[in-house]
Design a protein around this nucleic acid. Structure first.
Lengths: 242, 242
DNA sequence: TTGACATATATGTCTAGACATATAATCGTG
DNA sequence: CACGATTATATGTCTAGACATATATGTCAA
């Protein structure tokens, strides 16, 4: 967004219109509630057809920057909430991205018929078979996170034969299961004795907990709990809106 | 999204096309890398003009569900990372949304020239004036979170005279400062004595920490640290992509 | 004053074309 | 066979219209 780029670049017209409006909103020149020019006014100003300005405005509406109301016009939206895009990468990718050596160790893997607790955790009603996995991720041989996972075999039968001693279940699922939806819950706990030992931290030390529940089209796939040493790990999220 | 709605509703054509394709991707029928039909094929299938299918495909591309390549076609994108939309609402809104009574209490407010520590925290180089605020939010008279905030007065001069005893700084900023960008860092700590007292929890209890740094067009606005009792508070994020 | 109705208007969607542009595939040449 | 030039093609953008639809606003009657 340098000044030079503004004159040197030759973006397409609708992108220029979109960028012009976005800029006025972002700088506060057009505050929330302000009505932006009507489509026919923008047509005149930019000397183009309505479809072109419509495309620009539609994208701004899709990005929640403006709100469009029939007969009334288009208005700058009031920021409604802080929404952040939290990138929770595959742990291996996360570690290697930091330039550290990734280590993985399977602690245990058990195939069993779903217990009542398993069904509750996966949010399914009828019993089926599941795989329960516990493993540990490390960076430069220092414990990074411990993972406790349950996979629903009625949704992902191939997981019964996958070699989780070689490949972490997260990576395996990422490459074997198509688009999914997920829900994350982030909380904090203090390490109990078992956790402290696994993460090589003191009992009572803070831990960041991520519980992720993943499904695809109403079918449960997996539930996982990740425990990170709380003082060394950070989740970073960058955002839009405010 | 009931079955009845599927037949009863009469969405516009481009939305139907978009939904049809999205469904095939989400169910895995069209796996990552799969080439979706060309625009002219979709024109024939739906009996419409190219602009209509183009609008559907453009929106899917904007949502990162497909990737479009000239001359080659459009392809289902490989899930690249777990990205989650984390809604970090205004705390007052968050509490009232839960049907609980919101309480707010200003602990202290100090106007001062930025110290070296302040400049570091705000990420600015030259000194200026800042407001430092400490306050506490409660739900049904139970401590919910403590807030420690710094506002850069050279960016938001009106903050010098705002009445933060009446209105929480988060709400005030949300309504007085236009669109901003932010970066969040989430971590866990254990409560020290001061924190424990403020949150009415035991020393050594886990706390969830959210550090938020907010700016607008390269201008720093505010830096805030929020501390929540870790065992009672949860951040929930729902998502896309897997 | 209020409520029912008519009207004007801005956006929502769509068409049947057009030219531009990036690039996969093909062809030709050394 | 390797490599550069050509061509075909799918997407990217745009036009000048059209009709649909929701709704703000004004009008008129109870």
């Amino acid at each position: 967004m340098s000044l030079a780029a503004d004159t040197a670049e030759k973006p397409t017209l609708y992108k220029r219109i979109r960028a012009d409006i976005e800029k006025r909103i972002l700088t506060g020149e057009w505050p929330p509630g302000h009505r932006i020019p009507f489509e026919h006014q923008l047509m005149a100003r930019y000397g183009c057809s309505r479809m072109t300005v419509n495309k620009a405005l539609s994208e701004l509406a899709q990005a929640d920057l403006i709100e469009r109301r029939r007969r009334a016009g288009s208005f700058v939206r009031r920021p409604q909430h802080m929404s952040a895009v939290l990138k929770i990468a595959d742990i291996r990718a996360e570690i290697t991205a930091l330039g550290r050596t990734y280590g993985y160790e399977l602690i245990h893997r058990k195939l069993r018929a779903a217990t009542a607790a398993d069904r509750d955790r996966l949010g399914v009603k009828k019993a089926g078979r599941v795989v329960a996995i516990a493993c540990r991720h490390s960076a430069d041989n220092v414990p990074f996170a411990v993972e406790d996972r349950l996979i629903d075999l009625s949704s992902v039968p191939e997981a019964a034969t996958a070699d989780f001693a070689r490949e972490p279940p997260g990576s395996w699922l990422l490459h074997h299961v198509p688009w999914t939806e997920a829900e994350h819950t982030i909380s904090a706990i203090v390490a109990d004795e078992r956790t402290a030992e696994a993460l090589d931290i003191a009992v009572g030390a803070p831990c960041l907990v991520i519980d992720r529940y993943t499904w695809r089209s109403a079918r449960t796939i997996t539930a996982v709990r990740l425990l990170y040493p709380g003082d060394s790990h950070r989740l970073v999220a960058r955002f839009e809106g405010g």
